[in-house]
């Protein structure tokens, strides 16, 4: 089974091969379900010129926001980036390029990219600035625009549990973009809360089959809450 043992011992091993100017697909929605330790390690490694594809860009000082501090991200592909003052500053100064993408289109770009579908038509964004320069076509009496899929040299995902073979289970809404991100990386790294032996996860309940996952690392998670909202 050793050929299928995906577990790595440390973050250096997990991110081996990551170099400047690569494209990273990163799971998570806001600060929920993000690979915290892998992102922090990328900050330490100091690689730069990165293109990051993720729904959000973290907040100042946490999540992908960490990689903005030393200007490691050259381009951000995201649907919503409104939580981050540093992001705004770098965007306005022209140091950071951003490609805003409707959330469902972003999810589908990852899904399709991972599934070997290079592009797809969607109604989202037709007639808006997002459609500029894109092919538009009518299907069933409705206009759609052609969107290209996304893959990356690396995908960084966060899961609840993995087995040693890289099968993944997510927890609650920390699933979000992680399953599609996991399929869209040439090398997919899963940072997880718990690693169990192969056979311990019920095959009925696996969200991401191990075929998509190259490396598994056990992380420790702060799980910072962005908008703590309690019942009045």
């Amino acid at each position: 089974m050793s050929g299928f043992n995906k577990v790595v011992a440390n973050y250096d091993e997990a991110l081996d091969g990551l170099t400047n100017d690569m494209t990273l697909i990163v799971g998570g929605f806001g600060l929920c379900g993000i690979p915290e330790g892998l992102i922090a390690k990328i900050k330490d490694l100091g690689v730069h010129g990165l293109t990051c594809v993720s729904n959000n860009a973290g907040v100042d000082g946490f999540g992908l926001g960490l990689l903005l501090e030393d200007k490691q991200i050259r381009k951000m592909i995201a649907s919503y980036v409104g939580e981050n003052a540093l992001f705004e500053q770098q965007l306005l100064s022209g140091e950071l390029e951003v490609e805003l993408t409707p959330q469902g289109t972003l999810a589908e770009k990852m899904r399709a990219g991972g599934a070997g579908i290079p592009a797809f038509f969607t109604p989202a964004g037709y007639g808006t600035p997002i459609a500029e320069g894109k092919e538009a076509r009518e299907f069933n009496g409705k206009m759609h625009i052609l969107e290209e899929s996304i893959t990356g040299e690396f995908a960084l995902v966060k899961a609840w549990k993995a087995d040693t073979m890289g099968n993944l289970v997510y927890r609650k809404t920390a699933m979000n973009f992680n399953p599609m991100a996991a399929t869209a990386g040439k090398i997919t790294i899963a940072e997880v809360e718990e690693i169990v032996e192969a056979g311990e996860l019920d095959p009925n309940h696996i969200h991401t089959p191990g075929i998509y996952v190259n490396r598994v690392i056990k992380g420790t998670f702060e799980k910072r809450i962005e908008q703590l909202t309690l019942k009045k």
Binding site: S79, V81, P102, Q103, G104, A124, T128
Partner: peptide, 12 residues
């Protein structure tokens, strides 16, 4: 510019 989130997909 904060981004459109899911609004474009929803209204379309």
């Amino acid at each position: 510019i904060k981004g459109m989130g899911g609004a474009m997909d929803l209204v379309a």
